[in-house]
């Protein structure tokens, strides 16, 4: 068999784009819905929704137990699509992620059994605990939106968004992600501990039944795909493109490792998604600024010579100093 069977239900890959206001409405509904479960992370939720609309993947840096899984699950549930989860462990094999060909005794043929990556929202938990080979299997899937097993290539169903988490607590038992791979995540976000008020609200909500069980879908996968088309069509005039370039150049001039062109592309895409979220069919510099930190900060390495202590500081500095024209 040369053509792999679609293992899951497939969606129309090229729907007509939604009008901007409808796309904005879809995004709003999703954000609102997720927030029925997730307390106090409005910004992060919005970032995740824009990342999905911009066809990006996310890296969540966090301590365990702050609601990463719950966030991913509520998101998947809100857009009515498959949610899958892989717990990365040191003994996890690449095929454990991508899927494996299993010999069917009855048909005398190998049958492809898709792995957890064949989901629409994939939560890759503690990605830094798996060996690099396994990590790269996931990263290939993220980049290409397909997996190759035993020479066979399988397209992944759309929408497809990986939400990977890293655990910084037990650094000695992890394989740190190489910079080249980190670059493939559109955004890196941090949830952080909730504020006392938010935390008590969380506690209030979990007493009785867990709210996620009552969560309904507010958008279809088709709508999300159509909204992605809308985002792709958003105008980015030269003034904005130029601004993005100047921001990237600033990081290159002021850090050991600056933002790659891939980073610039991700920033412009995210800004497009942000514009849609705001109900506009054109990008303004404000969109770029809203997305810059999440999209760029993890891509730069500040060295001893840079004034900024961290990627975040450097990006904040760039936003302050690069003139908006």
């Amino acid at each position: 068999m040369t053509e792999a069977n679609p293992p899951t239900r497939r969606t129309d890959p090229n729907p007509d784009p939604l009008p901007v206001d409808e796309a904005a409405a879809v995004a709003d509904r999703v954000v609102e819905n997720v927030e029925r479960v997730i307390v106090g992370h409005h910004d992060v939720t919005e970032h995740i929704v824009t990342a999905i609309l911009a066809r990006g993947h996310l890296l969540l840096d966090d301590v365990p137990g702050v609601g990463k899984t719950m966030l991913a699950r509520s998101l998947a549930r809100s857009i009515d699509c498959e949610f899958s989860r892989v717990q990365f462990t040191p003994d996890l094999m690449p095929t454990d992620v991508t899927g494996v060909n299993v010999f069917d005794e009855r048909t005398r043929e190998f049958e492809f059994r898709p792995g957890p990556v064949f989901g629409n929202v994939v939560l890759a938990d503690e990605i830094n605990r798996a060996p690099p080979k396994t990590q790269s299997a996931l990263l290939e899937a993220m980049e290409e939106a397909q997996v190759t097993v035993d020479g066979e290539t399988y397209k992944l169903d759309q929408p497809f968004t990986v939400i990977a988490t890293q655990n910084d607590v037990e650094a000695d038992r992890t394989y740190e992600l190489p910079i080249a791979e980190i670059d493939r995540f559109a955004k890196r976000l941090t949830l952080g501990y909730p504020s006392p008020e938010d935390e008590s609200e969380v506690l209030r909500r979990v007493t009785g039944g867990h709210p996620i069980e009552e969560l309904d879908a507010v958008a279809t996968a088709e709508e999300v795909i159509a909204a992605r088309e809308t985002v792709a069509d958003v105008t980015a005039e030269e003034a904005v493109r130029d601004y993005v370039t100047r921001l990237a150049n600033y990081t290159r001039d002021h850090a050991d490792l600056g933002v790659s062109p891939r980073g610039s592309i991700a920033l412009l895409r995210s800004a497009q998604a942000r514009a849609v979220l705001d109900g506009r069919d054109y990008v303004v510099p404000d969109d770029v600024q809203s997305e810059a930190e999440a999209v760029l900060a993890h891509r730069v390495r500040t060295g001893a010579e840079s004034a900024a202590q961290s990627g975040r500081e450097l990006i904040a500095e760039a936003l302050d100093s690069v003139p908006v024209e």
Binding site: V284, P285, D286, Q289, D320, V324
Partner: peptide, 9 residues
């Protein structure tokens, strides 16, 4: 207007 400030801001 500060340099990094957008017209909207």
């Amino acid at each position: 207007r500060r340099p990094g400030e957008t017209p909207r801001e």
